[in-house]
Design a protein around this nucleic acid. Structure first.
Lengths: 228, 228
DNA sequence: GATGCCATGATTGTCGACACTTGGTTCGAT
DNA sequence: ATCGAACCAAGTGTCGACAATCATGGCATC
């Protein structure tokens, strides 16, 4: 499981600021630094054994990825995960990934489509085995979406989705252990999207992808309504 | 003409970094700092009479808005406006603003819709008068889109579109003086979108907005093909 | 007893200086 | 003459320290 999408967490960075950025991002996403907590620059700098300069740069990058909020003269806080924000993210994902699926159907290379189908085949075996771990299924879910977005070839689209929204989605999962009972349904929907892309039907691919993300959002809405 | 969308350029900032950020952003967007040019930190810092610290922070923020590119140990350059990038932006705008129009049709307050119609009424008079300036029409175009996006109430959506993409669009216009001969058509399409929103028809509003942005993109494609 | 003001502490914003990397130039060797 | 390596300059990355700002606590006053 060393070749999933999460590998961009600690890509070796030539500069200290980049390395610290990756480390503290992982710490925030995985909940090691709790959500809503205030971040003290001297404390964090001492914890990582660096000066405040690179740490401030890392904080700035974390702010640009919407993982921390900064107010002038007031410091930085890890964002608090509100339910509304989570649903907002799914709305944006519906729009952007729908478009990504449409373009991927038009421009994705045949080899990449074959890889995508192999990935889904593996996921199906994992789901069939009763012992599949929820974690793997969910990482696999991100992996599927990741490849579709890459298939669009739109660099800015890739940047928005992979550098901002996916990390936020992972953060939500780590916080409330979002165990999805929708795994089987989601896999089925993934296969439908992949089929539409393989048939080069952009219109259908977009429609299916939007329907898939909307279903995920509604599942979350139901759970939030139950848990209050 | 003091109440357009461009007012967030020099919002008074308590910190120097924020002020410099706004100033150099304006300088880049309006072409004062030419596209593709390398940015020297000491030079810019001296030019604005500040130290390198706040300037580096401003540069980082400019990088997060995709107006400059930074490579480690190599410095920052103003992005070069490639035609493909411009078209990519329109693809993203089609997806996001289409979704924004759909949600605005569902949730935009009646008063905001009335304001929107008044805005279009003003634009129609300006277009009818033969002496309307291209500049105003184009700023008005941004103003219309700005209000629709605001109407969605999705904060992250608003942030992506207003803080990143719109400034890029303005930059393109300032670079190649994008005089649109599509003003009359665009206004008509704006009115159709506004009507759909007024009728609370989200499906239609999204379809019309996407069609509108696609038409703008195709107009640019045609001009690029001609000018080669 | 409650409220407003002031002092204190801590934290952020800013600055100037130093170390390291990068790119170009020049000198030397083949 | 050309290729290669070492030298040099410019610029970025990093650091520690100073100044400005905000939060907290105590005190005086109403």
């Amino acid at each position: 499981m060393a070749s999933t999408t999460a590998e961009l967490l600690d890509e070796e960075a030539s500069t200290i600021a980049d390395r610290i950025f990756g480390q503290v991002r992982q710490a925030i996403v995985e909940g090691e630094i709790p959500a809503g907590s205030k971040i003290s620059e001297p404390a964090l700098a001492a914890r990582y054994g660096i000066s405040r300069g690179p740490l401030r740069e890392a904080m700035r990058r974390l702010e640009s990825t919407n993982l921390v909020e900064r107010r002038p003269n007031l410091g930085a806080r890890v964002i608090t995960l509100s339910n509304d924000e989570l649903l907002e993210i799914y709305v944006i994902r519906e729009a952007l990934e729908g478009m990504a699926a449409r373009i991927a159907a038009e421009r994705m290379p045949d080899a990449a489509i074959a890889d995508l189908k192999n990935l889904l085949e593996r996921h199906r075996r994992e789901v069939a085995r009763a012992d599949w771990q929820t974690y793997f299924q969910q990482e696999g879910d991100l992996d599927f979406h990741f490849r579709i977005v890459q298939g669009s070839g739109n660099r800015r689209l890739i940047d928005i989705l992979c550098n901002d929204l996916y990390h936020l989605a992972r953060m939500y999962r780590c916080q409330f252990g979002m165990k999805s009972d929708r795994a089987a349904d989601a896999l089925k929907e993934h296969e439908l999207v992949a089929d539409a892309i393989a048939e080069r039907d952009g219109e259908l691919a977009e429609w299916l992808m939007r329907r898939h993300i909307r279903a995920s959002r509604r599942a979350i809405e139901r759970r939030l309504a139950v848990e209050g």
